[in-house]
Design a protein around this nucleic acid. Structure first.
Lengths: 248, 248
DNA sequence: CTTACTCCTTGACGTAAATCAAAGACGCGC
DNA sequence: GCGCGTCTTTGATTTACGTCAAGGAGTAAG
C-alpha cells in the first residue's frame, strides 16, 4: 500500500505504536498533531463484530494490532470476504454515512479511531491528505481487482498459494524486510475464513494446505503457524508474477 | 455511481453529449469551463486496445459513447475482466503514471480525454472535485467488492442474471427510468467477454443464456438484444437483493 | 450464388471442487 | 485425569462447470 514508504523513523502520533497510512510521511508532524486531537481507541475481542453492513458509521480508523475482515453475504448465508485489515490498514469512508460491509475482528483487535466529522474537516483543510486518501483508495481498488482475477480464474491450489504469499509478504514488510527465501508467520485466519476469502469451502482449503505441505512448498507448526522454505517457490505456485504487490 | 444524480438539465461541457461524472452537478458551470480548455477527443474501433497494462498513461477520460472493458490476465492466457466502462464512466488515476489493466473497446468507442497534468492541477485547485473523485473511486471499490461476492459465491445462472440485471439497470438509468417491469437493451458483449467478466467459459454462458430463455426469464432477439419481461424476476434469479445498485 | 469468417449453440464426456460424513487434534474447565 | 467444545483433517461420493468436438447462424467478400 506504500505511502511514502515503510516507516524509517519512530512513529509520531501520540502513543500509537503504528504509523497511520492515511498520513503522508513527508508532512506528518503537523497533521499527526491535528489527528492526535480527535482520536480515541477501541478494542475488540476475537470474533466480535466491529460494525454491521448498513450501520451508521461515524468514525474512520487505523488498525493498531490484530486482524479484521470485511465480508459480504447473500441471504442464504453464502459469504465472501472482500478485504482483510492488517495492522496500519485504514478503514472508513469519508463522505459516506453507512458501512458497506460487515467488519469482524478475527483476533483481538485494537483500532485507533477518528471521529468522522473532524476528520473530514481535516481533509478539506489539508488537500494533500485528501490526495493521499485517494491514492490509498486506488490501491485498494487495484487489490480488489487483483482479487477478482484470483476468484474468477485461479485454481484452488493457486488461490491458497496467493493468499499465503500475500500474508507472508505483508508480514515481512512489517519487519522492514523484502520477502525472499525462508519466511515464517502466523496466519490469523481459520480455515473457514480462508475459504470465505478465496471462494472455496473449508474442506478444499484444508486439502490444499495438506497438499502444499506434502509437496514441500510450506511447513506447518500447529494449525496457524506457516513456514515458507522458499518464497519464490510459493510465488510460482500462485500462478502469476504480480508477486503479491497488492494488499501490501 | 450516482453523482448528484442523473442529468436533469442539458450537458454543459462544450459539445460533449454527456455529463462528466467527475464533476459535481452543483458547481459544474465553472469547472466544466475549466475542463473544456484541456480536453480533446479520441475514438477507437471495436476490438481496438485503448491502453495496455503497464503503459504510461498521460490522460484521464470519460466514455462518451460505446463500451470498453478492463481486463487482467495470467501468463498462460486466462483472463478476467475487472470492470466495464459504459457511457459517462470515468477512467483514470490521478497520481499514477501507469495503467494497471488493459482497456479494450468492445464497440466503437468515443472518449473525452483530459491531459493528466492540467487535470491534476485542476484537482488541487478545486478540492470539491477531488472529493467527488474520491467518492467515485469508493463507488468503484464497492462495485469491485460486490463483484467479488459474485465471482466467489454465485452459481453460473446467478452470475448471468446479475450481469443482465446490472446492464439492464444501467441502460434504463440512461433513459432516466427506474428499472422495473419490461426492459429491453443491447448487450454490447460477446459471449466470451461475458465469460471473462463472470469467471466462466463461453460455453457455460451460452448454456445459461439458453436456460434463462427457456425458463422465460429473458427473451433474445438475435444474439445481443435482450428483452426482460419482468425485471423483478431477473433480480430473483440474481440471488441477492442488492438490486444491482452498484456499477450504476 | 459460394466461400469464408466470426460468433454462437448444443452434445458428450471429464474433472475440480462441493457435499456429506466421520473421526482426529487441540484447548479449556472441572 | 475426563468430558466437551471448536477447529481441522481425511475419505467417499456427487455435481456444476470445464473441455473437447461438431455443427448452425449471421455477415461480408468474391
Amino acid at each position: 500500500m506504500s505511502l511514502h514508504e515503510v516507516p524509517t523513523v519512530a512513529p509520531k502520533c501520540g502513543d500509537c505504536p503504528i504509523r497511520h497510512r492515511a498520513v503522508c510521511a513527508r508532512c506528518e508532524v503537523d497533521e499527526l498533531a491535528l489527528l492526535d486531537a480527535i482520536k480515541y481507541y477501541r478494542s475488540f475481542e476475537a470474533g466480535q463484530t466491529v460494525i454491521w453492513a448498513g450501520d451508521r458509521m461515524d468514525f474512520v480508523a487505523s488498525v493498531v494490532t490484530g486482524v479484521a475482515t470485511l465480508t459480504q453475504t447473500l441471504e442464504d448465508g453464502r459469504t465472501q470476504m472482500v478485504g482483510l485489515l492488517l495492522p496500519s490498514d485504514f478503514m472508513g469512508r469519508p463522505g459516506r454515512t453507512n458501512a458497506p460491509y460487515n467488519v469482524t475482528a478475527t483476533t483481538d483487535l485494537l483500532m485507533c479511531c477518528f471521529r468522522k466529522k473532524p476528520f473530514e474537516e481535516l481533509l478539506s483543510k489539508t488537500p494533500h491528505i485528501a490526495q493521499r486518501l485517494l491514492e490509498m483508495t486506488l490501491d485498494e481498488l487495484d487489490a480488489a481487482r487483483e482479487w477478482m482475477l484470483l476468484l474468477g480464474r485461479k485454481t484452488a491450489r493457486e488461490k491458497i498459494a496467493s493468499l499465503l504469499a500475500i500474508v507472508g509478504r505483508r508480514d515481512a514488510s512489517l519487519n522492514l524486510r523484502a520477502p525472499s527465501g525462508r519466511l515464517a508467520f502466523d496466519l490469523a485466519l481459520t480455515r473457514e475464513a480462508m475459504a470465505d476469502y478465496l471462494g472455496l469451502t473449508l474442506e478444499t482449503v484444508s486439502r490444499q494446505m495438506s497438499a502444499l505441505k506434502r509437496d514441500g512448498v510450506i511447513e506447518l507448526e500447529g494449525k496457524r503457524h506457516v513456514i515458507v522454505p522458499d518464497y519464490d517457490l510459493l510465488l510460482d505456485e500462485a500462478g502469476d508474477d504480480s508477486d503479491g504487490g497488492f494488499l501490501v
